[in-house]
Design a protein around this nucleic acid. Structure first.
Lengths: 210, 210
DNA sequence: TCCAATTAGATAGCCCGACTATCTAATAGT
DNA sequence: ACTATTAGATAGTCGGGCTATCTAATTGGA
């Protein structure tokens, strides 16, 4: 299909599609002449993935770029892709790693992970993510105790087990990869939305019982 | 304290503090003269809250503004503040509410909420948030079935019950309010981080068992 | 008392991310 | 032959979140 058709079908302006090609999010079409290229369904799929990551996952272009690079890298086995996506997601804002606050928080995180026996790489960015939250809570005078953490841990294990359980659904890599990435980013949103609704509901039940 | 001291203690540049005052995130100091104002510990606390929301919660200034406005509004009872914060958080990107895709997704969401018997307002932005994720998943050819949703629902209820249970810790409004907001935003990050780590761990256990 | 330092308040500037617009050849289709 | 379309390059825009500068007033120390 022509780029104008790709634009129509995806709902994105031609210029935006060109921009994504420039940024390496989308492979360029097969050139049929100096000023002509042919696009196919895979381009359309990729655009849908990009938009999902951007609009729902709220990921910056740079993160999307890393993710699709991993998706396109045939050398990365499917079960590693999930981890790669984690790294691409990382902590959004670079944490200030200096100071005793950070030191202590990071040690707390490592202790929790060890305690749980979780197999998480020592330099996983998710550790920083958690430590960042710990630091902020502590600065607000709301230090975390393990008992507060327990429901979150339980919830995390609950969904993670389920997610990993349904990873190997097919052997079409493109599809499997999309499922993995979508699971990571989109179901994170699902979880967040459900938690907020459950909160509102529990709160309403608790207080507005009239 | 002087603004320079506030700057030192918070670690933020004076200009940034002034900017926050201009944007209404921080009340201005008590003027002692035309070019002098006095700041106190509450300003420092507020700055810490702002930074936590910005750096860990990754909220835009506009959302922080809504939240602190609710915090400052003495007319809002504590148990409503949580809901107010939800609204301020909202869906980050305005969803395209047109089209049958959206219609269907929104109906699915409403059906789920009704099915669960959750008390969630019909116009709660969290419904849109979830619908947005549903639309994206459907467009990627990964439609949601209720059985997939169940672990997430369970996890959401688990943490929400715990959170609402520990809401009324004290009667110092300022503190209680901070706890409520922090619970909402910061523990969301905690949950996300834990889920990602649990995923990595479960994945490692499943595949790297050598 | 005088002067360097500080500050409130206002205005303008900067940087980054994510597009969007324009321009130039070079075709394609009619 | 002529109009529409396109690849590729370059430049411009816009919003968000700060920074920098400037003015006039005031303070606090030598």
């Amino acid at each position: 299909m022509k780029i104008s058709e790709l634009s129509d079908r995806s709902g994105l302006p031609v210029q935006t599609i060109k921009y994504y090609i420039r940024e390496g999010l989308l492979p360029k079409g097969a050139a049929t002449a100096a000023t002509r290229a042919e696009y196919d369904g895979r381009h359309l799929d990729r655009l849908r993935l990009i938009r999902a990551l951007r609009e729902v996952g709220d990921l910056p272009i740079a993160s999307v770029q890393q993710i699709v690079a991993a998706v396109d890298d045939e050398d990365i086995p499917l079960h590693q892709l999930l981890g790669t996506a984690q790294y691409a997601l990382g902590p959004r804002a670079e944490p200030h790693r200096e100071g005793p606050d950070w030191q202590a928080a990071r040690e707390d995180v490592d202790a929790v992970v060890a305690e749980l026996g979780w197999q998480v790489l020592p330099d996983a960015p998710t550790r920083d993510l958690l430590a960042q939250a710990f630091v902020a809570l502590r600065r607000l005078g709301l230090p975390i105790v393990l008992s507060d953490l327990r429901p979150y841990i339980q919830a995390a294990e609950l969904v993670a087990d389920h997610e990993v359980g349904r990873l190997l659904v097919g052997d079409d890599r493109e599809k499997a990869v999309q499922t993995a990435v979508a699971t990571n980013v989109l179901y994170e949103r699902v979880l967040i939305a459900l938690r907020r609704m459950a909160q509102e509901s529990a709160s309403a039940r608790r207080f507005d019982d009239g």
